[in-house]
Structure formats: structure tokens, C-alpha cells
């Protein structure tokens, strides 16, 4: 497919325009936006196509210069399920990851002890179903019970970040760059660079 049409620019667009189109698209399909979504793989696929197209264009323009040709995407990896406490919980996490939500929920409901992790997992299940109200309650309880746990905190915060992103888009979010979008663009660009083996911001 024509890399220019992937980015939605004309073949004689300036480097600046291409970079902007690329950044906008990366923001649109950013893994953070599809965190915990069952459409994540579709978004990743889009992102890969976009990265490839951008690479192709920059390489073409540099005429075989020093461009980064490493497109084999390790991509964004999912790291939410890192620490597993009990054997039960890790089994339930596996079930959730495989999409067996009903079974995972039955196992959770059968437990008598409602720990922070229990609430967290209930929240993840609710979120997978799109049941935001319940998910938020459970994440809230998990963070209240274990305030230092980053995983729970992150899940709770992520529920709001999608909303904020949506609310800032279109109409009031398109005119220029504010401090927040500037930072997030830089972070996006950094993520993408890292996807492809490079690095933009060395500390993260």
C-alpha cells in the first residue's frame, strides 16, 4: 500500500507535514488508548502499518541514508499482569487474559476473602465487559486497600485518561499544542522510537 495514503498526506507533502500526520495517527492508535480493550490487537496492527509507512517515507526521502530500518515490531508489550500473588489469582489472571471472563468471575465469586487483588481482578473483568461503573468501584476499593500498589493505581487512573483524551479531542483540542499535549506527543514519539529500537527520551 502507498505509504503516503496510509498517513493521509500527498506525495509532495513537506517533512513537517508528514511528521505531524504521523504524530496525530500515533496518538489516535496509541496503545494507552486501547489498554485493556479487546480491540487492542486491531489498534496495534494499525500502528504497525503506520510505523512502517513512516519508516518507508523517511528512508525514501533520506535516499538510503542513516534511517532506522528496523521495522520488525517488538511493539508495545502488555505488562499489566506482572506480579501474581497467590496461585489462584495467577490462574484467574490467565483466564482473564484468554477472555474466559465468566469462568474467572465465578472463581472470584467463590472466594470468601475479598483482598485488594480480588477487587482489582473484579475490576479488570468488569472493564473488559465495558462495565465502567462497576470497574471503577472495584479499582477504587483495590487502591484504598493497597495504596502503594502501582498496578491497581494505574488501572484506576487509566479509566479516567481515556475520558480526558476523548473530551479534549475535536473542536477544543485541535488548535495548537498545549503543555499537556506537547508532553504526551513527546512520550508517544518516545514509545514509537522504542518500538522500533531507537530512543527519543533516554530516561524512559
Amino acid at each position: 500500500m502507498d505509504p503516503y495514503s496510509v498517513l493521509g498526506v500527498s506525495a509532495n507533502a513537506s517533512d513537517e507535514e508528514i511528521k505531524k500526520a504521523y504524530r496525530d495517527l500515533v496518538k489516535k492508535y496509541h496503545p494507552d488508548k486501547y489498554r485493556d480493550s479487546d480491540l487492542k490487537d486491531l489498534a496495534d496492527e494499525k500502528l504497525r502499518t503506520i510505523n512502517k509507512a513512516y519508516d518507508e517515507i523517511t528512508n525514501m526521502r533520506k535516499n538510503g541514508g542513516t534511517g532506522n530500518t528496523n521495522t520488525g515490531g517488538g511493539g508495545y508489550t502488555y505488562n499489566a499482569y506482572g506480579s501474581a500473588a497467590g496461585a489462584n489469582f495467577s490462574r484467574i489472571r490467565m483466564m482473564i487474559q484468554m477472555g474466559q471472563l465468566n469462568q474467572a468471575e465465578r472463581e472470584l465469586d467463590a472466594m470468601s476473602n475479598q483482598t485488594a487483588e480480588w477487587h482489582y481482578l473484579k475490576g479488570v473483568i468488569a472493564m473488559r465487559r465495558g462495565w465502567a461503573d462497576g470497574a471503577k468501584e472495584h479499582f477504587k476499593k483495590a487502591t484504598d486497600m493497597a495504596p502503594s500498589n502501582m498496578e491497581y493505581q494505574q488501572a484506576y487512573n487509566a479509566m479516567f485518561s481515556g475520558n480526558r483524551q476523548y473530551q479534549s479531542y475535536y473542536g477544543n483540542g485541535t488548535g495548537g499544542m498545549d503543555a499537556c499535549s506537547c508532553c504526551s506527543s513527546a512520550l508517544c514519539a518516545d514509545c514509537c522510537c522504542e518500538c522500533m529500537g531507537g530512543d527519543l527520551i533516554s530516561c524512559c
Partner: peptide, 20 residues
């Protein structure tokens, strides 16, 4: 505030799917 959260959550999810 609670209701607003729920409404916008669904809108942002719908928009994310729409973009795909």
C-alpha cells in the same frame, strides 16, 4: 460526576472502536 464518568467512558470507548 459519577454519571458523567460513565457516559464519557462509553463515549471514549465507542470513539476508540470507531477509529478502527
Amino acid at each position: 460526576e459519577e454519571v458523567r464518568f460513565n457516559l464519557y467512558y462509553s463515549l471514549s470507548e465507542a470513539a476508540a472502536a470507531y477509529d478502527l
